[in-house]
Simulated assay, not measured.
Amino acid sequence: MNAGPGPASAIVSSTDREGFAAFMLRARAAGIEDMTLMSVIESVPRRQFMDAEYHHLAMAPRTIPIACGETLEGLDLQARIIHALHADGVSRVLEIGTGTGFTACVLSRLAKRVYTLERYRTLHQAAAQRIRHLGVTNVISLHADGSSGSQDGPFDRIVSWNAFPSLPRHFVEQLVSGGSMICAIGEADEPQVLVRLTKTGSRFEREDIGTVRFQLIKAGIPRIL
């Protein structure tokens, strides 16, 4: 496991311990027995990634509003997706949709290097500040359009927190052979399928792993926000 948050990090506060214990029970019921992942999630202070009015929901499964009309996914779904990503100590990971920066910090403890892209300047700047504050040194946070991936590839793993309306075939060149991508496929007003896409030759092998409801991915950089 890689070096992650530095001196500024801390194990969850005593007020969160009951919530974390409940999260652990839900994770086990969902078939997630990865104690390394559980330990990493516990070590990243999730309250610091949300407004004070939502601190009581830090370990909850529900989504939480954040700036720019976006949301922080519930902890259960975040854990499920990170678990499905199978990142390890040699993985180069691309994250599309930095949001608050929480999942980038979690991934920083599991992967060798994380490139995280956020199209909203406000979210990018706040997340980059949190990442620096926690002493994370293996996350590269960029204000960028992630709809077509990144020129820093190829990557071992890619995760997108936005949905694609159809199979994102253009991402196959962003992955190393045998690399995988976790994303949702489906329109905003239709059922979306969470999939693992594994690169085999010049194509994807698809495995459906659940259902979600994400905002559709958008191209370009907003002039404001």
Rank of each mutant, 00 (worst) to 15 (best):
E187Y: 13
R121Y: 09
H143W: 15
D76K: 08
I11Y: 09
G19H: 09
R17T: 13
I82V: 15
A163L: 01
R213M: 08
G186W: 04
Y54M: 09
T15E: 14
R196T: 11
G19Q: 06
F23V: 07
I64E: 01
D156W: 02
E118A: 02
M38Y: 05
A22P: 02
A219H: 12
S147Y: 07
S43R: 00
V195Y: 00
A21T: 04
K112S: 13
F204W: 03
N162W: 07
V93E: 04
N162P: 05
S43C: 04
E73N: 15
S180V: 03
I82Q: 00
A84C: 05
Q125A: 14
M38C: 11
A8F: 06
I221S: 05
A21S: 14
R109W: 01
A219C: 06
T36H: 10
V136N: 05
A22C: 09
A60Y: 15
G6D: 01
A30G: 05
I182K: 03
Q78R: 02
G149P: 05
I158Y: 00
E187T: 10
D76N: 09
D76C: 04
G97V: 03
L72D: 02
P7W: 01
A3C: 08
L167G: 00
D189T: 15
V136G: 00
L25S: 14
P5F: 08
L167Q: 09
E53Y: 04
L107H: 00
L107T: 08
L75G: 03
L72F: 10
G220E: 00
P191Q: 12
A84Y: 02
S166P: 07
I209K: 06
D145A: 07
S150N: 11
H124G: 09
E205N: 12
E70L: 13
A60D: 15
I185R: 10
S141I: 02
S13P: 09
T103W: 02
L77K: 08
V93N: 06
A67P: 00
A128Y: 04
L75E: 03
E95A: 00
R169Y: 07
E33H: 13
C105P: 03
S9P: 03
R80Q: 11
D76E: 12
G201E: 06
L37K: 04
E205A: 11
H124S: 13
L77A: 06
L216V: 07
T100Q: 05
W161R: 04
L167E: 14
L94S: 05
L216I: 10
F164H: 12
D16T: 05
S108R: 03
M1T: 07
L142C: 12
L134M: 10
V106T: 12
L123Y: 06
V136P: 01
M1Q: 04
H83E: 14
H133M: 10
D88A: 06
P65M: 01
L197I: 02
T211Y: 12
T100N: 09
D76R: 00
P222T: 14
T98S: 10
I64H: 09
S177T: 12
F204K: 01
P222R: 14
P165F: 06
T71F: 09
